[in-house]
Write a protein that binds this DNA or RNA. Sequence first.
DNA 1: GAGAAAACGAAAACGATTGTCAAAACTGGC
DNA 2: GCCAGTTTTGACAATCGTTTTCGTTTTCTC
Lengths: 126, 126
Amino acid sequence: MSTRRETVRQALNESTGFRSAQDLYADLRSEGSKIGLTTVYRALQALSDSGEIDVLRTDDGEAVYRACITDTHHHHLVCRTCGKAVEVEGPQVERWADAVGAQHGFTDITHTVEVFGTCAACASGE
Amino acid sequence: MSTRRETVRQALNESTGFRSAQDLYADLRSEGSKIGLTTVYRALQALSDSGEIDVLRTDDGEAVYRACITDTHHHHLVCRTCGKAVEVEGPQVERWADAVGAQHGFTDITHTVEVFGTCAACASGE
DNA sequence: GAGAAAACGAAAACGATTGTCAAAACTGGC
DNA sequence: GCCAGTTTTGACAATCGTTTTCGTTTTCTC
């Protein structure tokens, strides 16, 4: 639909890692785009609402986004230095989360699971 | 050491759930304390630095804190309605996270795992 | 007690995000 | 092609949690 949303989606696709809104905005501007920061936020919001992109929070509370390849439920292994992310699955973790919830009488269980580390490239570069 | 830090620690102890800094501040003020917001933040920072309390981020990026009973590494099952939290362990999840990290050449693996649900009390109350 | 160091708190500063609003781009009907 | 109405956009201001700054007060330490 909107051209701008496509622009943002594409900018996200060009990265393997999680990117912040401000970050994407800076990139697009430096590429010569006249896009506004508000629009970047709106596009990211729309994309994440429709489930097309994944969102998570960094330790300092900033929201970061990623266009994931896998459609199904998955988690991420994220490099804490360069932000590069790998999509991973963990059926056993899903089962564990559900079991733990049920065991304590909780219903409607969801979970957040992210693994952080230093990727091989960043480890050797230091 | 500091009286104020003790005050904050105690306020946290009185709750079973995760609380935000603003929230704790409001509580303390309404109890008649003359504590400042800055001090609440400083106390929470200090307590979390020393590992005495656990921190996590809500979906909207707010930091919430909890005084946990368990000293060892653990995770939380949190009610998304009332915020009540139960401390849970998942050795299999720890192993999974480490394995996944190693498998992709990542080092220095850490992970965040939180389970959300609706607790029995909140489910029946609706 | 005196003087130095640590803790406090009010107010200002900050940074990410959201709201406002007028201008610009797109619509379908003529 | 052109108009009225809707949608999208972007500059700017506002918000909100959090951090800094900077006097002031309290707490050691001798």
